[in-house]
Simulated scan of single mutants.
Amino acid sequence: MTAARLHEALAAALAAHPPLAGSVTAVFASPPVRAAAPYALVAEAVVADWSTKDAEGFEARVAVELHDGGEDGARVRALTGAAQAAVAAMPHALGEGWRIVSRGFVRQRIVRTRGEWVGTVEYRVRVLAGG
């Protein structure tokens, strides 16, 4: 398995989480060519081997970006909170025998760049095959 399945699962979890899905125009799994703000983007993960003696696995650093064109950062702060709740509510089973065995919050950052607010929430997710 590649991190693609985890990436898809994250995008699906964000899109299925009512507080977030009801507050953004869309959830993207790759950078959009055009998008109306506010929107969410699951950024590409940094992936490393995390296999054990008896199970294949990987560790991924995943980030969810929330983009907003508002005057202040209030809405993007609320969106980052909703994204955190969506990631926390994700099921452990990813399908095809893969499961999340741990997920840890790493950091959150909110910046204003090129006329928009961008909130980034980053996680370390460890995934193993089997079970």
Rank of each mutant, 00 (worst) to 15 (best):
A88S: 14
A74H: 06
L79E: 09
A78G: 12
D72A: 06
T80C: 15
H92S: 13
L79D: 10
D68Y: 02
A74C: 01
H92L: 08
E65V: 04
D72Q: 04
V64R: 01
G73K: 08
D68E: 00
A78D: 12
A89P: 01
G69N: 09
A78Q: 13
V87W: 08
E65K: 12
A63N: 01
V76E: 06
H67A: 01
A85H: 08
L79I: 08
V76D: 03
G69F: 00
E65S: 14
A63W: 00
A82P: 06
V62T: 10
A74E: 12
L79P: 12
V87Q: 07
D68V: 02
G69Y: 04
G70I: 00
E65T: 00
V76T: 11
V76H: 05
A82Q: 15
G81R: 13
R77I: 12
M90P: 12
G73C: 05
G81N: 11
R77M: 14
V64F: 04
L79W: 08
D68I: 01
A89W: 10
T80N: 04
V76Y: 02
L66K: 03
V62N: 00
E71I: 06
A78V: 07
A82M: 13
G73I: 05
G70T: 04
Q84I: 08
A88W: 07
V76I: 06
E71C: 00
A83K: 07
G81Y: 10
M90C: 09
R77H: 13
A82S: 14
A85P: 04
A83D: 03
A78T: 10
P91T: 14
L79F: 08
A86H: 13
V64P: 06
A63K: 06
H67K: 03
V87I: 15
V76G: 03
L66E: 08
